[in-house]
Design a protein around this nucleic acid. Sequence first.
DNA 1: ACACTGACCTGCGAGC
DNA 2: TGCTCGCAGGTCAGTG
Length: 268
Amino acid sequence: MPELPEVETVLRTLENQIKDRQITKVHVYYDKLILGDAREFEEKMTGEHFREFERRGKYLIFRMDHVTFVSHLRMEGKYYLMKPEEPLTRHMHAVFDLDDGRQLRYNDTRKFGRMKLYPLDYDFTVLKDLGPEPFWPSFNAQYMHAYRKGRSEPIKSMLLDQSFAAGIGNIYADEICAACHIRPGRSVKYLTKKDDENIVRETKRILKEAIAAGGTTIRTYTSSLGVTGRFQTECTVHMQKICPRCGSAIKVKYIGGRSSYYCPHCQK
DNA sequence: ACACTGACCTGCGAGC
DNA sequence: TGCTCGCAGGTCAGTG
């Protein structure tokens, strides 16, 4: 489910809730959730405190005492803080007992999410398969121009490519294309320098507004901990029927393996 | 190197 | 009502 703004919201919520809490016990119920050995994960995480909270793209990064704990929610991963006596449901795949008596529970209907331990000093700023954060100054029109050189894929695919920019997902990719009046299927070959500037600017703006609003609520997205994304940023095209700008019917097309929404009148 | 496909999982709604 | 199909805000391995 979550894209950059939702992951950021989850991270900040967790920071408020569990910073400096100690894990007294860990139980992983679905071993494939852990990249690496699940028993070793349980062992290494026991006794650790949640010290620092970072995000890189859609990855949640927790600096513990001796390890770095990285969690990716993929499509439906969620964290809940619950009392131990509350029933464990079938999609809760990991439970962390905390020293204040609460439990941090990881819930994931589709079991796509993954967790992994890294060394404490592991640097996530430079990762070869992860591009710049959209808010970094290095994510600019010049960078985009250079990145798309020699490529011909649809702009939608490039926006979803995490090595182009870290954190953009299907919803925001559609919204960025709409804000720039570009059809998601347009080849990056036919973009102009002005398009580069617009896309970079709108990407930063849209993501920033979504974070300020606390993440998108499409369908039933409630971020972790019952923090119902207080967010009412209406999408202009994604999952919409009518273009709010011109009233035309929104079209849906499969691009880059994902449903893509656009206004055939406003986007060329 | 690039572009595209299928696989990983489960649940839900549409259509028959 | 009950079944099957297609689809879901992500990423990775495999293919040509």
